[in-house]
Amino acid sequence: MATGGRRGAAAAPLLVAVAALLLGAAGHLYPGEVCPGMDIRNNLTRLHELENCSVIEGHLQILLMFKTRPEDFRDLSFPKLIMITDYLLLFRVYGLESLKDLFPNLTVIRGSRLFFNYALVIFEMVHLKELGLYNLMNITRGSVRIEKNNELCYLATIDWSRILDSVEDNYIVLNKDDNEECGDICPGTAKGKTNCPATVINGQFVERCWTHSHCQKVCPTICKSHGCTAEGLCCHSECLGNCSQPDDPTKCVACRNFYLDGRCVETCPPPYYHFQDWRCVNFSFCQDLHHKCKNSRRQGCHQYVIHNNKCIPECPSGYTMNSSNLLCTPCLGPCPKVCHLLEGEKTIDSVTSAQELRGCTVINGSLIINIRGGNNLAAELEANLGLIEEISGYLKIRRSYALVSLSFFRKLRLIRGETLEIGNYSFYALDNQNLRQLWDWSKHNLTITQGKLFFHYNPKLCLSEIHKMEEVSGTKGRQERNDIALKTNGDQASCENELLKFSYIRTSFDKI
């Protein structure tokens, strides 16, 4: 039985969820670079991206490699990797027998973001014989899940209580170790020597080791999670996991709180800001991140802002960003909400898709409305799209047979046209069989910064309504002859009103 693990408890099935942008060198404390989270699957090609990484700022997932063999891993080693800020997950990587050479110096898994409450997941690794993470000293947050690894031993010899604050939620089941077939031998045991430290858990006094050649490092209890030197002297209180010299914040392997210019500090002093819960960055760093993602459509890219001495992905609820200094300031009234469309555009074809934009005031991208039916549609669209004030790209209304009016965009005031449909149009209306009105132009103002209007096959939309939009939106004169079809717009509506004058002759039985 794995020490510190839980057996036999019912657990939810383990679901495996399925960018080499360097964020800056980590400095003297770390020998390499800070790398983003990685999802490495199918083959070993991307694994080489770990070569210079000291910190993975995010998670590391290595999974679904069915053609790899043990010899493929023999020359692979990433000794610079010290810390993973989120979680480490391995799933069905064939041929991998140990992690001792792959990650010989991995010391800390912070667990800032977890995989279903777990910071370390080893699942269905069919050839893994031992973990071998002999320098792993601290899992700051989260638990361990090690399950269905039929060859995995050296679990009962690990004292997880020396690595985690609590072992109650560890789930370590259905491994070879369960069948008591392992016969784990710690260093020196074969020669009758006791080389590794022994600890007591559940009444068992057991030597602690990761492999037959690597003991588990056990520091004096007084050192807590700070770690200790090879001689057993406690590291500085700002260290986490390990250090090369005692009581020196510049000799830590990793930091308990924050890293700044080669030393570990309790908090980031001005003019620095907390970033990702582990390091200090200056304003320029946060500003660069903001600008890199301002026009990016890459998933996970955030326009970072500053709030409460932190550089964070977005302002919290009730705050909006001051564009001059990136500071989050309290909103006066309802907060603006910028919604970034991942692929640059979004099609609204149902109430469900409209709900995804609920509360958005600025759309960074283009909207395509293609709704053919739905219950209580006008009210639903207004509830979900009615706060949109600005669209950076274009607005396209296409084959939306259920629409009679666009009044559900009740606050839309600006279409920038930074991206144009077919390279020309910022407003595009095609084949809307029941569209009769755009907006009530006596109450609604709309500016279209650039781009043209396109109207074709809107049989109940009168040309007068379209011409009014040209005047109000500032697009009059931009359109070419064929942009607004004269014969297919309003051709099934009563669009022309003329005053009919009647004269009559009164007659009676005795007068003409």
Rank of each mutant, 00 (worst) to 15 (best):
G203M: 09
R141P: 01
I146Q: 03
Y319R: 09
R69E: 11
M38S: 03
S324H: 15
T140C: 05
P70L: 10
I222M: 04
C335W: 06
C234G: 02
N43V: 06
D177W: 08
R46Q: 08
D277K: 07
A119Y: 00
N52I: 02
E33C: 14
Q216F: 08
P104D: 00
N195K: 09
K251L: 08
V93H: 12
Q61V: 08
V206I: 05
I306R: 02
Y171R: 01
L128G: 01
K176P: 10
E71L: 08
P220W: 00
R297F: 03
P330T: 14
L128V: 03
C286H: 03
C219S: 03
Q287S: 12
I172L: 15
L90N: 00
Y154A: 10
Q299H: 13
T267R: 04
L102W: 12
P36R: 10
L164A: 09
T85S: 08
T320A: 09
G241A: 12
C228P: 02
E33Q: 10
V167R: 08
L164M: 13
I62Y: 01
T68A: 12
D184L: 13
H226N: 07
V121N: 01
M65T: 03
L89I: 12
H214V: 11
A190P: 11
I109M: 02
K176M: 12
M321W: 13
D165F: 13
S112G: 06
K67I: 12
L76E: 01
S237N: 11
F283K: 09
C328H: 01
I82P: 00
N105W: 02
D159P: 12
V108Y: 02
V218T: 10
S54V: 10
L120D: 00
N202M: 05
F91P: 00
L89S: 02
R297W: 08
H214S: 12
E57L: 05
N325I: 00
M65E: 13
I201H: 15
K224L: 11
I82D: 03
L332Y: 05
T211D: 07
C209S: 02
E33T: 07
E130R: 04
P271M: 06
G95L: 01
E130L: 04
I82Y: 14
V121T: 06
R263K: 09
C228W: 01
I62G: 01
Y304P: 05
R113G: 12
C328V: 03
E130W: 04
P316T: 04
N175V: 02
L131M: 02
N175F: 13
E238K: 04
N170C: 07
N282W: 02
D247R: 12
Y259H: 07
C280G: 01
D169A: 06
Q287N: 08
T211E: 15
L164S: 07
F205P: 07
P79Q: 11
C209I: 01
H48S: 12
V144C: 04
P79I: 04
V121Q: 01
G32E: 10
D184R: 15
T211M: 04
L233M: 08
V265K: 04
T107G: 03
I185S: 04
I40Q: 02
V121L: 03
P271D: 02
L327M: 08
L128C: 03
L81F: 01
P187H: 04
G241N: 03
L136Q: 05
L76A: 15
A190V: 10
V173M: 04
Q245L: 08
E314L: 08
C223G: 02
K251R: 09
D75H: 05
D178S: 08
D248P: 01
Q61P: 00
E57A: 07
C235S: 00
S213K: 13
Q287A: 15
N135I: 00
D248C: 02
P220Y: 08
E231K: 06
P316G: 02
T189V: 11
Y134E: 06
K217F: 14
L99Q: 00
R41F: 15
G300C: 11
C264H: 00
Q204D: 13
H59L: 01
L29T: 14
G32D: 14
K67E: 14
S143V: 06
L155E: 08
Y272R: 02
L152C: 15
G203K: 11
F275D: 01
N170G: 05
C315H: 02
H274R: 07
C286R: 02
N150D: 04
R256W: 03
I139T: 02
L120R: 01
H48F: 08
G262M: 08
H236K: 02
E314V: 05
S161F: 12
M137I: 09
N170M: 06
N257Y: 07
G300K: 13
L326W: 05
I82F: 12
V121C: 07
T211Q: 12
L128I: 08
L120C: 05
